[in-house]
């Protein structure tokens, strides 16, 4: 255990120049192309972007969950330890106990032939080395805290509704009291009401225990309410980063702007009978190596946007953006 002062001086997670490249049919497909960010204990970071922007790939590569399918370079310092180069045994110790993942489809992430109790007890017994009795007591408590009553804990995943399964996933992620939870689209397949319930629950549990969270979704407005900071990804890179509310209210990157307009505010006359969309399609990984990747769809693009390399630069206190039209400003951090 680290002392509070040590915690304050050292980030929980430091990601530096992360690249993830898939090999596909003899070709190298870059999915993540240089991502940097840091997370202090208890920090919540939302990662938004469209499918194919690399957000899930980025998050899952932090724990080397892609195996040999992808080449991951850069540094992922978790409590000072580089997870990309550390031994498998150390990495295994970090998974679950240090950092756990809530996957998108609870039905496919849970084992269909084992009861939810068994599935929650397993990591506790393996990682925390607690006896089966103690593990069962803790699992029951955890499931209760996510709203699954004790009488249901010996049920199988298919006996639960989608929302309940996602709650089970959250309980599992909390099983070994991790310092970081990576939630990959935890509510995407769920109804709005269930989605609100799950996010409220996750927020509560995380606040209580000061767990850091990386939450990935395509719904920007949702992230603004659940996360302190927001990173918007496009074509494998972070194009805007800053405090959630500021990013949502006053987006600096044109892509963030169009993404935030895609979810209308009910009552806003500007969006009545006027859905906001963005012509064109998200680039496929490997396309558009030159200049700003968003330029082909950007309403503000100029000739100069189509060449050279574009980096995320400071644009205000705690904010940064990767757009030529946003003037650099000192005092920003990434």
């Amino acid at each position: 255990m680290t002392t509070p002062t040590a915690t304050a001086s050292r980030p929980l997670l430091e990601v530096r120049d992360l690249h993830v490249t898939y090999r596909q049919g003899g070709q190298a497909v870059p999915a993540v192309r240089g991502v940097d960010f840091t997370l202090a204990p208890g920090d919540t970071l939302g990662v938004a972007g469209e499918s194919g922007c690399g957000k899930s790939t980025m998050a899952l590569s932090l724990l080397r969950l892609h195996g040999d399918a992808a080449k991951v370079t850069g540094e992922v310092l978790f409590d000072g330890e580089n997870l990309l180069t550390t031994s498998w045994s150390k990495l295994r110790a970090v998974r679950w106990a240090g950092a756990s993942v809530v996957f998108q489809g609870a039905m496919s992430a849970l084992n269909p032939v084992r009861t939810v109790l068994d599935q929650i007890v397993e990591p506790m017994v393996l990682h925390d080395r607690v006896g089966p009795k103690e593990a069962e007591r803790r699992a029951t408590e955890l499931l209760d805290s996510v709203g699954i009553p004790a009488r249901r804990i010996r049920s199988y995943p298919h006996e639960f509704s989608g929302g309940q399964r996602q709650r089970v996933m959250i309980a599992m992620a909390l099983a070994c009291r991790p310092d970081l939870i990576i939630a990959d689209e935890p509510t995407t397949a769920l109804d709005v009401m269930v989605q609100a319930q799950i996010l409220e629950l996750l927020g509560e549990l995380v606040r209580e225990s000061r767990i850091a969270v990386i939450m990935i979704t395509h719904d920007l407005s949702l992230l603004a309410h659940t996360c302190d900071r927001l990173a918007v990804m496009y074509a494998g890179r972070i194009v805007e980063l800053g405090p959630s509310r500021q990013v949502l209210k006053d987006p600096q990157h044109p892509y963030t702007r169009s993404l935030s307009q895609a979810f209308p505010t009910i009552g806003d006359p500007a969006s009545r009978r006027a859905p906001a969309g963005l012509p064109g399609d998200p680039p496929r990984p490997g396309e558009n190596d030159q200049g700003c990747a968003f330029a082909p769809r950007c309403p503000e693009a100029e000739e100069s946007c189509r060449s050279g390399e574009l980096l995320l630069w400071p644009t205000g206190p705690g904010r940064s953006a990767a757009c030529r039209h946003v003037p650099p400003q000192h005092g920003g951090t990434s």
Binding site: A262, G277, P282
Partner: peptide
């Protein structure tokens, strides 16, 4: 569909 494409289909 993705957020940006959503608007295009609704349009």
């Amino acid at each position: 569909l993705d957020a940006s494409v959503r608007g295009e289909i609704l349009k």
